[in-house]
Write a protein that binds this DNA or RNA. Structure first.
Lengths: 127, 127
DNA sequence: GGTATTCTACTACATCTGTAGAAGATGTCA
DNA sequence: TGACATCTTCTACAGATGTAGTAGAATACC
């Protein structure tokens, strides 16, 4: 399940709040897009076709909701990027991020904490 | 500069060793692709058009070499993914990675070290 | 020098993506 | 019940992408 650029935009607002109507989604999309309403409908139809969202009829109007979770979509996208650009491994990817990004103190702290948390959880689950 | 899936494959072997001929690249690409030689030539031409590689003639034969570095390409790809899927911020992206990937002890250690290294370098540059 | 090999340039074509209009179906309010 | 407003479905169409064939130019080998 690979999302295109425009599809990500739709999904992003859909994940924020759903079920949603096409109109509702239109309103929450960045206005700079300047998309015609039918453009959004087309995108939603395509997303339904590829099984990323579910479309259900409420009277005349369609309601949409995600089928794939944001988490899953993110994981897929990262996996795909890792494959493409980092020999399929997350290690180098993370390494690259840490090396390349000027992390703020806060971010660093946060990361360290996350790593430690994860560590702790693991130890506990071992018990 | 956005590379497509197939273009990444070409670039990946080109970055490994260059300058390279189309034939040479063909040989180093994964055989599972089963690409016709002309397919590779087409991809190379497109890459040259978009300024990702430089093509130079050596007699009758073209030599190719990257213009954009692997590092830059990686950075672009990550930036683009961050924008699309993580509200444009690297923080959440990294956080996601740490949370989602089961890091091995080694990877964790490595990351911690990288963060600290980076830290140290920064402190030094401040002096 | 002639023939086989290998390159290159050009063209082709199906599918996917981005973007949207047209026309018909349905809802709504006076 | 008619006149808008709004939704939906279909269709369109240009540009990007994946994949490759053809034909002619350059090179190589005998």
């Amino acid at each position: 399940m690979k999302l295109t650029d425009t599809e990500w935009q739709i999904m992003n607002v859909l994940w924020e709040r759903y079920p949603a109507t096409a109109r509702g989604i239109a309103e929450r999309l960045p206005k700079e897009n300047n998309w015609a309403y039918t453009t959004i409908k087309t995108l939603l139809t395509r997303l339904a076709e590829k099984g990323a969202v579910k479309e259900s009829k409420k009277g005349n109007t369609s309601l949409y909701e995600p089928i794939i979770s944001r988490h899953t979509a993110r994981r897929n996208a990262l996996k795909s990027l890792a494959n493409q650009a980092f020999d399929g491994a997350f290690g180098p990817l993370m390494h690259f991020l840490v090396e390349d990004q000027k992390l703020t103190e806060n971010q660093k702290q946060e990361l360290l904490t996350a790593i430690q948390e994860q560590d702790k959880r693991k130890k506990e689950s071992v018990k």
